[in-house]
């Protein structure tokens, strides 16, 4: 069935706030912000119906540059806060954003649970393989051997693979993009937002100041391989996991996996439970009656 055409009532600029970004000139996050403006315009929800939560990091500043209700919380805790918002008001569109350190290091413990709960929200990670805000330390996605200020002699650790990890936890929507292809990234974010359930968009968003030279927008443009161009079937989780293993070696962009028959979301189940139990509610002031020894 064809979706009814929605008139574009919002334009990208309606989501742009008056706050001027303070990212380093050339930071990949500028492109991600533009892509988010476009995706939000395409989705067409009013800014005041959007809650945009982030943690701490350069990338976590992003909600402030939008006209949505933004919440720049504490390092690593954006996902739990966002889930609380969505459960309290499922009518809101909830976006979450942050860096690779925020999401896969300090906040790493929250990711599998957000995924298995499957609350309808979109998580955009600006993965620059480095700690930007704190000036260039090792990140959980930094490649093994990387020299940083906290790994002078080269990192001894294997990186986390965000794509493989989220697919393995059962995420219903996993995609990757780069600001080197802003239009493509906007499409991916839009599709993620429209997906009913938890969706992850891992964005290879270069850090111009502390990142590696071969990990910049220009290099991405040359290296990126859209998944559509290699005939990947995004309904095939196993194929997606195969491709995800290339993380850090090849730059695949597009949707790795999208569950063709999304299960009901947690927030929908909550609503259903609330509806079915509403008639059982005694007036609040009579709640204690159940303890009377009759």
């Amino acid at each position: 069935m064809k979706e009814p055409t929605v008139l574009p009532t919002y334009q990208a600029k309606d989501f742009k706030s008056e706050l001027k970004p303070i990212w380093c000139p050339g930071c990949g996050d500028f492109g991600v912000l533009q892509a988010i403006y476009r995706a939000l315009a395409a989705v067409g929800r009013a800014p005041h119906e959007i809650a945009f939560v982030s943690g701490i990091g350069c990338s976590s500043r992003i909600p402030g540059y939008t006209t949505a209700y933004g919440f720049n919380s504490v390092h690593g805790r954006a996902l739990p806060i966002a889930q609380g918002i969505k459960l309290a008001n499922p009518d809101l569109l909830v976006l979450v954003a942050g860096g690779d350190g925020d999401g896969f290091s300090i906040g790493g413990g929250h990711v599998p649970h957000a995924i298995r709960r499957n609350i309808d929200l979109t998580y955009i990670v600006m993965d620059n393989q480095i700690y930007g805000l704190t000036k260039g330390q090792l990140s959980p996605t930094s490649p093994k051997g990387l020299h940083t200020v906290t790994s002078d002699l080269g990192s001894l650790e294997e990186p986390v693979n965000p794509l493989l990890y989220t697919l393995a936890y059962g995420a219903g929507f996993v995609a990757q993009g780069t600001p080197a292809d802003m239009a493509g990234l906007a499409d991916i974010i839009e599709e993620a937002i429209r997906y009913p359930g938890f969706s992850l968009v891992n964005v290879q968003s270069p850090c111009v100041t502390f990142g590696e030279d071969d990990n910049q927008v220009k290099a991405h443009r040359a290296a990126m391989k859209p998944l559509s161009s290699i005939g990947h079937d995004p309904t095939n989780r196993i194929a997606a996991m195969d491709l995800a293993q290339q993380y850090g070696k090849a730059l695949h962009t597009g949707v790795f996996f999208k569950n063709p028959s999304p299960p009901p979301t947690y927030d929908a189940l909550v609503r259903e439970r609330q509806r079915s139990l509403a008639e059982k509610a005694v007036p609040r002031e009579r709640l204690l009656d159940m303890f009377v020894q009759k």
Partner: peptide
């Protein structure tokens, strides 16, 4: 709603989220 969170940080975080909402 109730959320049995993955840890206490997530528990209070979700409660704070609900308050934001």
């Amino acid at each position: 709603a109730v959320l049995q969170a993955e840890d206490e940080i997530a528990g209070v975080g979700a409660a704070l989220g609900a308050s934001i909402a």
